[in-house]
Simulated scan of single mutants.
Amino acid sequence: MADARFEDGDEGPLRLIAQSADDLSVLSALVQDAVFPATEMRLDRKARRFAILLNRFRWEDEAASKAAGRPYERVRSLLVIDDVLKVRTQGVYPRDKDLVLSLLSISFTETTEGAGTVMLVLAGDGAVAVDVEVLDLRLDDVTKPYIAPSRQMPQHKD
C-alpha cells in the first residue's frame, strides 16, 4: 500500500499560527502525540527562534481514516517558536541521538504584558520551557502524509 497524498483527502498541508491562547489550544491538539528525536530541537539564538522537526499524527484525518478503513497517517511538521528569550529543559537531553520524545501538549503562561513561557509537556515527565517576548508559534507540514509505522491511533492511559 502506498503512502497517502494530501490530494487524496481533498486537503492541503497545515499552515497554522498561534498568537493567542485560543489559537494555541488548537495547535496543541494537532501536535498531541507528535514524536521526534531529541536531536531535532534547535535554538537559533541570533534569530531568537526555537524549532522542532516532528512526526505529527494527523488528528484532523483520524475520523476519515477510520471511516474509510485506511491506515492512520503521520506527517513531518515544523513547529517554530519566535521571539525566544531563553529555553530550559527538564528530563530532556538534546544531544542524545537515541532519545525519542513524545509531545503531549503545549501551553502558555503570561508573566508580563504579552511575554511569558511556552511549555511543551513531553511523555515521561520531560518538558521544554521557552521564555518568549510575545506568543508567536507556527506549525507547517513539510512533507506529504505517510502511513503511521504502528498503523495505530495513539492511545492514552487514564
Rank of each mutant, 00 (worst) to 15 (best):
V26T: 06
L137S: 00
D125T: 14
K97A: 06
D158M: 10
L24F: 07
A148I: 12
R48F: 06
Q152K: 11
E60I: 01
A123H: 00
L137K: 04
L103I: 15
T117E: 03
K144M: 14
L78R: 06
A21V: 05
D8C: 11
N55Y: 04
P71H: 15
R49Q: 14
A123E: 02
A129M: 08
L43S: 01
Q152T: 13
D33V: 00
D136I: 12
Y72R: 05
L53K: 07
R151E: 15
R42E: 08
Q32A: 04
P71E: 15
V26E: 04
K144T: 14
D44C: 02
E113W: 11
L16A: 09
V35D: 11
V100H: 09
D3E: 14
R42Q: 10
S65R: 05
T111H: 13
R42A: 10
L85K: 14
R45T: 07
S20L: 04
G114W: 06
V35I: 14
S25Y: 10
I147R: 12
R95Y: 08
A18V: 10
E11F: 00
I106E: 03
D22S: 12
V132L: 12
S102R: 02
I147P: 08
V31T: 06
H156K: 01
L43P: 01
T109L: 15
P154H: 08
E60C: 02
K46I: 15
A47G: 13
K97M: 01
T112I: 15
G124W: 00
R151M: 14
R58C: 01
V80W: 00
D141V: 08
R15G: 14
H156A: 00
R74A: 10
G9E: 11
L104K: 03
Q155S: 12
T39A: 10
L101W: 06
L78E: 06
E60H: 03
A47D: 13
D98V: 08
R151V: 15
D82F: 06
R76Y: 02
R88L: 09
L53Y: 06
K86M: 06
Y72M: 05
S150I: 11
L24C: 10
L103Q: 07
T109Q: 13
V87H: 03
Y93I: 12
D3S: 13
G116Y: 02
